[in-house]
Amino acid sequence: MAAADGGMYRREKAVALRGSCSALYNNLSVLPRRPQALAYFAAVRGGTVHLVSAAADGLSASHRQLQAKEGGLPGSASVLTQMYESDGSIMVYWHALDAVDPPPAQAVFARGIAAAGGRFVCVGTSSGLVLVFDVPGKGTNITLSEVLEEHCEAITDIAAELSDSPAGAADLVTADDVGTLCVWRAGEAFALLTRIPAFGCTCSSVKLWKGVIAAGYGNGQIRLYEAATGVLRAQVHAHARWIYALDLAPLSGKLLSGAEDSFVHVWQLGLDPDTGDVEIEHCHSECVTDTQICGARFCDPEGSSFAVTGYDLSEIIRYAQV
């Protein structure tokens, strides 16, 4: 591993939130809107999603709060999946899974979400199930098409390869609380391609890029696996404490990591055309003083800007490449 010339980033004007952020893995989502020079940011606090649309200069912002819908019968516990229009104005679908006699003191939740195969949205649950929703190109006739049952522990994160992939390649990777990874091919029936066994540490965040899985762990490591075979290709002791978030810029191969140690790192991934080896180089670091980072996302597909959230922090901190 070596330092790469990935460009320096500088701190930009922060985006205020009407509330603070919970200490949840990957607690930030970003949807860029280039024609309007806007970006949508979303972060969670308890049962509330804080949604902010902000201009590139950070001087104007519009706020919306989405509350968890009450579902299920009175006195029953429910896992709810809700799908909205991108600006949060209209809820187009919701799905409830009633918990059947969960063990005492065991939390029931949905965690991890990704779009795969051009028409599917996959959602993880505390029981280890992965729900596959078939989302039509038009209309709101969303259906639960499949339930993937390969995991035995709570799902922590789900990631998908968004670009067109060759036949037989991986489309989706799912991770759980003990660190097991499952790699899938999306389709009318999802197919398990490989299973990467746990090694005694939670995998809190995963990403998939050009057939490479980037996985962040509770011991501060980032591990890079070959998605098709599950072979470990590289590992980096990236952080001193638990990694809470990873993100990948698909056009450049930049990898973003954020952790409990208050640091955000930018890495450059690459594939050696001759040997096929996976390469990772360090590009940039930022320290958000006295902040437990819980979310980190690039704001564009090139990775020229990124945003960060922190536990109990009431703003989204933004950085742009100089």
Results as ranks from 00 to 15, higher is better:
22 S>W: 02
196 I>V: 10
295 G>T: 00
138 K>W: 07
206 V>H: 05
240 A>N: 08
63 H>T: 02
219 N>A: 06
215 A>P: 00
112 G>K: 00
153 E>R: 11
24 L>D: 00
241 R>N: 11
69 K>C: 08
65 Q>L: 14
119 R>L: 13
40 Y>C: 02
76 S>M: 06
294 C>K: 00
59 L>R: 13
45 R>I: 03
241 R>M: 13
203 C>R: 07
29 S>L: 14
208 L>D: 09
266 V>G: 01
156 T>N: 00
218 G>H: 05
100 V>P: 07
315 E>W: 12
36 Q>H: 10
159 A>M: 02
90 I>Q: 10
105 A>G: 13
268 Q>R: 09
247 D>H: 02
110 A>W: 14
146 E>R: 01
275 T>M: 01
230 G>F: 12
138 K>D: 15
211 G>K: 01
128 G>I: 09
271 L>Y: 10
300 D>F: 15
232 L>E: 05
214 A>G: 03
223 R>M: 08
134 D>H: 05
20 S>Y: 12
220 G>C: 12
234 A>Y: 14
102 P>N: 07
24 L>I: 07
77 A>T: 15
230 G>E: 09
150 E>Y: 09
19 G>I: 00
264 V>M: 01
31 L>H: 04
244 Y>V: 01
105 A>E: 15
290 D>V: 02
265 H>L: 04
127 S>L: 10
249 A>M: 08
263 F>I: 15
3 A>P: 11
21 C>F: 03
252 S>N: 08
174 T>R: 00
183 V>I: 01
99 A>V: 05
196 I>Y: 03
133 F>N: 01
204 S>M: 10
270 G>Q: 01
231 V>T: 12
121 V>L: 15
288 V>R: 10
154 A>L: 12
16 A>R: 14
320 A>N: 09
8 M>Y: 12
109 F>V: 12
224 L>E: 00
157 D>N: 06
221 Q>I: 10
320 A>T: 13
265 H>V: 00
254 K>I: 04
117 G>E: 09
290 D>N: 11
171 D>K: 02
261 D>I: 06
30 V>P: 08
138 K>C: 13
215 A>H: 05
256 L>H: 04
321 Q>D: 00
153 E>N: 14
74 P>H: 02
8 M>T: 14
286 E>S: 14
27 N>H: 10
262 S>P: 14
234 A>K: 07
319 Y>S: 04
274 D>P: 06
156 T>P: 03
268 Q>N: 03
233 R>I: 04
245 A>S: 11
185 R>E: 15
28 L>A: 03
17 L>V: 01
2 A>D: 11
149 E>R: 13
93 Y>E: 09
49 V>P: 05
189 A>F: 11
231 V>C: 05
136 P>Q: 06
264 V>C: 04
281 E>D: 08
